[in-house]
Design a protein around this nucleic acid. Structure first.
Lengths: 140, 140
DNA sequence: TTCTCTTTGCAACTTAGTTGCGATTTTGGG
DNA sequence: CCCAAAATCGCAACTAAGTTGCAAAGAGAA
């Protein structure tokens, strides 16, 4: 997995530093978009400083190795780009009751047709609803 | 227009107060999602306190008269629900160069099929790209 | 008009992300 | 292998945006 991270950095012409490799590895382990805080938590006491985490994430976004996910709440979430299509991320579902977010892999919507002269870089879908767990709870 | 705002409040069983009517009217004038600050600015010196604006917006969201739009940046944007479909808002386009956001009215994507047991309340689409103005600027 | 419940404004506060800057690390060249 | 230049990092102080608690004002039913 570390090899994988190193490879990603090399392919994007980014220097291979400890913090970057650690952050990428932490994101590989996650199966949903993560926040700065979750990354730090995951890496434990040797986690990089939060400034470094934010700066790294923003660099990775710029290089298109990572995408920012648009999710309810005030906190930014990020995920590795390699499960996303070229112009479209997989949808994200947020339960409006338990507030958990999860990816909905393997599905996508047709790309929206933009007005004349506009170029699409990326289309993202966010869904709000009730997850099956909460739905069952409500039934009782 | 004021009548319209009053009607919205009545139909949702909300008390008709000055701040609420003013905020709804400000949103009716806008043709893209607005922030608390933009609402205050629009209403000028007699704008309600920012706490009131936030609280009002959150109430209106709860009543489904207003939706929160998911847009790049740290600031919340809101728009009236009456241009949105029942389970889907119109897409929002943000230019990654000038950062302006605009609505793309009249188009939508098929609703994503959720996993068994999940219920959809609302699907929202966010597109990032280059608007025609910026694209032309880059050409030169 | 009065009473009750809701809404508002204010000021202080919290959270999440940002900035500036000196110290450290990476990497390419000798 | 070693060095210098450029990129990156960590820290502490800061900013922006939204939140909270509470007393005062307002809405609407009787």
């Amino acid at each position: 997995m570390k090899q994988n991270a190193v490879e990603l950095l090399r392919s994007s012409n980014l220097r291979q530093t400890g913090p970057r490799i650690a952050i990428l590895m932490a994101m590989m382990k996650a199966n949903a978009p993560v926040t700065q805080e979750q990354i730090a938590e995951q890496l434990g006491p040797l986690a990089p400083n939060k400034t470094t985490i934010y700066r790294t994430l923003m660099n990775l976004v710029k290089k298109n190795l990572v995408h920012k996910a648009y999710i309810e709440g005030r906190t930014w979430h990020f995920e590795l780009a390699h499960h996303c299509g070229q112009h479209q991320c997989h949808p994200h579902f947020t339960c409006s009751q338990c507030l958990q977010t999860r990816c909905i892999p393997g599905v996508s919507a047709p790309l929206i047709k933009l007005p004349e002269g506009f170029t699409m870089h990326r289309q993202q879908i966010r869904i709000e609803g009730l997850c099956s767990v909460c739905r069952n709870k409500n039934r009782r």
